[in-house]
Amino acid sequence: MKKLFLPFLFLLVLILGACGNNESVNEDNTTETKTDTFTYQSETGPIEVPTDPKRVVALTNGPNALALGANIVGIDEWTNTNPLFEEKLKGVEVVSEDNLEKIIELEPDLIIAGSYMKNIDKLNEIAPTVVFTWGKLDYLTQQVEIGKLLNKETETKEWVKDFQERAKTAGEAIQAKIGEDATVSVIESGDKEFYVFGNNYARGTEILYQAMELKMPDKVKELALESGIYTFSSEMLPEFAGDYVILSKNPDVDNSFMETDVWKNIPAVKNNQVFEINTKASTYSDPITLEYLLEFSKNHFLITS
């Protein structure tokens, strides 16, 4: 009886040990570690995702995931060219929804994609794929959703609350200095045209208009607030320039307009109330970018203006 009991006991210990390590043995005697999952309520329905994703391919919302310390192994080309993320993205592969073979090679356990992208079904076959629709959520709610997806909801909500408080305090200080009625416009240079932005199109607009509650010129409010962006020609620059201008300057385009009389005669230019930001470093609304632009706003409005 004892001879039968001892082998059985030994076998039971092995089984319990394997369960405790959350590992299973394949037919070829290799060990496979199982990943814990939870159900994330995505905009397309519930989906099982890793509780602690180890290899994330972010075809969109990469900066939001980076801000939460996600291990990004694949990133979209636009995020990759952003100077704010250069250090964090060293060695990360640039991919798109068309690069299915390369994505397979990266062995992701989670993929983040845009709802407009192709091959969503095929991406789902590689790893759980969560899609987001750009603009469906406001900039802070979007970050909270990424926090939920990466199982970091609590710390994300804490950051949101803290950021809102700091931005509001900075906004009050700025209004006290420049005046409550002073207007601010955010203008970007293009190849042959210009863009002016409403209150939810990155370039710091969410901070300036939503968090800080600074005022935009009436012309900007009329043409860009609802749509988010309005395109115009250089001759119209004076019409869209506020008392203060945040110039999103694209280093890759012709910026000779800054030498023209039209530009030089704008009151904000004459009064040295134009603050330049790098377009490539300001086209997202993730925590890394928001923190950078909040400090930019404080430094320029409160210190150099």
Rank of each mutant, 00 (worst) to 15 (best):
T129K: 11
R166I: 10
Q175K: 09
S185Q: 13
S189A: 08
E180G: 15
K136E: 02
K168G: 05
T156V: 07
E165A: 10
V184M: 06
A170Q: 06
E125N: 08
T156E: 01
L150D: 09
E172I: 12
A173N: 03
G179I: 12
D191Y: 08
I178T: 12
K118D: 12
G147N: 01
T154W: 00
K118H: 14
P128D: 15
K118S: 11
E155C: 04
E145V: 04
K148P: 07
K157Y: 01
S189R: 00
W159N: 01
K152L: 13
K161N: 13
T129M: 08
K177T: 11
T154Y: 02
A113C: 02
D191E: 10
A176I: 10
P108T: 10
K118N: 15
L106H: 08
L106G: 14
Q143V: 00
Q142N: 07
S185H: 10
G190E: 07
E180I: 10
S185D: 14
G114P: 05
I187C: 15
E155K: 03
E125C: 03
E158T: 14
S115K: 05
F163K: 09
G171E: 00
Y139M: 10
N151H: 15
V184F: 15
V144H: 07
K148E: 05
W134F: 00
Q143R: 01
D138G: 07
G114Q: 07
D162Q: 03
A182N: 11
A113Y: 03
T141N: 00
A127V: 15
G171L: 07
W134A: 07
A127R: 04
E165H: 05
Y116P: 09
E188Q: 15
K152I: 13
F163P: 15
I174E: 09
G190C: 02
